[in-house]
Design a protein around this nucleic acid. Structure first.
Length: 480
DNA sequence: TTTAGGG
DNA sequence: CCCTAAA
C-alpha cells in the first residue's frame, strides 16, 4: 500500500518542486542555510510530538496546502524521502537515492544526512519515541491517509522508524524556531520554509506537521479525542500532558528556540501518579491509605532503589505488572538516558499519622537505630517503608519537634496552613523519645562533656541532649 | 546488609 | 527521598 503511493507522491512532489524551487528557494539563501542546520541538529522529541499531534483532521486543509509548499525545501524533503525509502526498502528508490547522493555531495552535512539515511543506526537511542508516532498515526492519521504521504502508519512499526521520527522531530522543532526568524526576515518565504520543514517531518514520521499556528488547536483536538477514550493507554496521557507543557513553553517564550532535554520516558507508574495528582490532589491522602491496605502491591516499588536484588520476583497484581513493565522499560531504554533525567523522588509516600505513631511506638519499644527491627515488626505490612525511610522520618520528626520547641509561635502559624502538623500528643511523644533516645546526629554544641553544662544547651537542642545510658544509641559524632 | 549522615 | 560510606 505504501509502496504504491510512495513513488506517486514523490513524483508529484518532484513536479511541484520544480515549479517551486525556483520561486522559493532561490531568493533566500538564508532558508537553505537554516535548513541545513536543521538537518544537522536533530533534537529532542518534543517536537515530534508536536508534529504528531498536528495530525488533527481539521488540518487536512492546511496539509494539503502545505504539500504545495513542501517543495520549497527539497533538501529536507528529499533526504527524508530517501531515508525512509532506503530504510523500508520501498520501490523506486534508485532515483531518489541518486538524488540524495547528489544532495549529499552538495550539502556539507553529509554525515548527518547519512545518519538520517541510516536510520536504523540513528534510532537506537530513540526507541522511546517510537511509540509517539505509532500511537498517533493510528489515532489521528488513519482517516486521512489519502491526502497525505501516509507512509507511516503501517511502516511506523519498523524499528528504523523511531530514528526517523526523532530526527524529524528535531527538524521540526528547529524549524519552529527558524520560522520565527524567517518570518521576520522575509515573511512569506519563512512561512513556506516552515511549511516545508513540517512537511519534511511529516513525510518522515508519517504524520502531519503543520505550521505552528495550526498546532495549538489541533492539540486541543487531539487531547479531546484522547481523553475521550481513556483506555487507550497512559502513554497518550503522558504525551498530552507533555504536550501542554511544551505548548505553553513555546508560547511563553515567544518562539525563541527552546530545546528541551529529552525526558526519560515515564514509567506507567509515573503516568498513573501524574494523572492522579492532576485529577485531584485531595485524593492523595486517601490513595495512600488505600494503598496501605494492599501493602503487598507496592512492595516491589521499593526494591528497585536499594539494590537490584531480585528483579521482579513474580508479578502478583496488576500494579506489580506495571512496575515490572516500567522496570523493564527503564532497563531497556533507561540505560542511556536515565542518567540525564532526574527521576529521583519518583515515589513519595506521605506519612500518615498512623504510620508516624507506629514509628514512634516502635522507637519507644526498640530504641532508635534498630530500624530494621522496627520495620520488620511494625511496618511489615507496608512494604514501601524501608528501614531507611523510618530513620529518615524519625529524623524529620525530631527536627520538626525541635522546631516546635524553638519557636512555637512560628510553628503554630505554620500549623494553620500545613496539614502536615502532627497532633500535640504525638509531638510530645516524639520529644519524649528524643530525650530518651537521642538521635546521635543533631547535637548542638560538640560538647563531649555533657556532664558539665548539660542544662544550658539541653533546653534548646532537645533531643540533642545526649542520653548516655543507651549504649547502642550512644553514637558519638566524630568529635573532631 | 544495615546504619549513619549528607544532599 | 536518594545516595554513599562505614561498620
Amino acid at each position: 500500500m505504501k509502496m504504491d503511493r510512495k513513488p506517486h507522491l514523490i513524483k508529484k512532489l518532484a513536479d511541484v518542486k520544480r515549479q517551486r524551487v525556483d520561486e522559493s528557494i532561490v531568493p533566500g539563501s538564508e532558508e537553505a542555510t537554516e535548513v541545513e542546520h536543521l538537518l544537522v541538529e536533530p533534537k529532542s522529541e518534543h517536537v515530534s510530538v508536536d508534529g504528531v499531534l498536528c495530525f488533527g483532521k481539521e488540518n487536512i486543509e492546511k496539509h494539503l496546502k502545505m504539500e504545495d509548499f513542501s517543495c520549497a525545501f527539497d533538501y529536507g524533503w528529499k533526504i527524508s524521502c530517501g531515508g525512509l525509502d532506503s530504510i523500508h526498502g520501498l520501490g523506486g528508490d534508485d532515483l531518489k537515492l541518486e538524488v540524495l547522493d547528489g544532495l549529499l555531495d552538495e550539502v556539507d552535512e553529509v554525515d548527518d544526512i547519512h545518519a538520517a539515511h541510516d536510520l536504523s543506526g540513528a534510532c537506537e537511542d530513540f526507541l522511546l519515541d517510537i511509540e509517539f508516532p505509532e500511537k498517533f498515526s493510528e489515532l489521528d492519521c488513519g482517516p486521512q491517509e489519502g491526502s497525505n504521504l501516509h507512509n507511516s502508519s503501517s511502516e511506523s512499526h519498523s524499528p528504523g522508524f523511531s530514528g526517523s521520527s526523532n530526527s524529524a522531530g528535531g527538524i521540526s522543532e528547529l524549524s519552529i524556531a527558524t520560522i520565527q526568524e524567517s518570518n521576520s526576515n522575509n515573511g512569506v518565504l519563512g512561512k513556506m520554509v516552515s511549511c516545508d520543514l513540517h512537511h519534511t517531518f511529516r513525510s518522515r514520521c508519517g504524520c502531519q506537521a503543520p505550521v505552528m499556528d495550526t498546532i495549538r488547536p489541533t492539540i486541543k483536538h487531539v487531547q479531546d479525542v484522547v481523553e475521550s477514550d481513556d483506555d487507550e493507554k497512559p502513554l497518550i496521557n503522558y504525551i498530552l500532558s507533555n504536550k501542554k507543557v511544551k505548548c505553553s513553553v513555546k508560547v511563553s517564550k515567544g518562539g525563541t528556540l527552546l530545546r528541551q532535554k529529552r525526558l526519560r520516558k515515564p514509567t506507567r507508574r509515573y503516568i498513573e501518579e501524574f494523572s492522579r495528582n492532576s485529577t485531584s490532589a485531595k485524593n492523595k491522602r486517601f490513595k495512600v491509605r488505600s494503598e496501605e491496605e494492599h501493602p503487598q502491591v507496592p512492595s516491589e516499588s521499593r526494591q528497585r532503589r536499594g539494590r537490584p536484588k531480585k528483579i521482579m520476583p513474580k508479578p502478583e497484581l496488576e500494579s506489580d505488572c506495571e512496575l515490572s513493565a516500567s522496570e523493564s522499560e527503564d532497563e531497556c531504554k533507561g540505560t542511556k538516558k536515565s542518567k540525564t533525567a532526574c527521576d529521583r523522588r519518583k515515589h513519595q509516600r506521605m506519612w500518615t499519622l498512623e504510620e508516624v505513631i507506629k514509628l514512634v511506638d516502635g522507637i519507644a519499644e526498640y530504641g532508635v537505630g534498630r530500624w530494621t527491627d522496627i520495620k520488620r515488626l511494625l511496618f511489615a505490612s507496608s512494604a514501601y517503608r524501608t528501614p531507611v525511610d523510618l530513620r529518615d522520618k524519625w529524623r524529620n520528626l525530631l527536627r520538626s519537634s525541635s522546631a516546635h520547641k524553638h519557636n512555637r509561635r512560628e510553628v503554630e502559624t505554620n500549623l494553620k496552613h500545613a496539614v502536615r502538623s502532627l497532633p500535640k500528643p504525638v509531638v510530645c511523644r516524639i520529644r519524649e523519645l528524643a530525650t530518651i533516645h537521642p538521635y546521635p546526629k543533631v547535637r548542638g554544641p560538640k560538647i563531649s562533656s555533657v556532664d558539665y553544662v548539660p542544662s544550658s544547651k539541653q533546653s534548646t537542642t532537645t533531643k540533642g541532649a545526649p542520653v548516655y545510658s543507651h549504649g547502642r544509641n550512644l553514637r558519638r559524632k566524630k568529635c573532631s
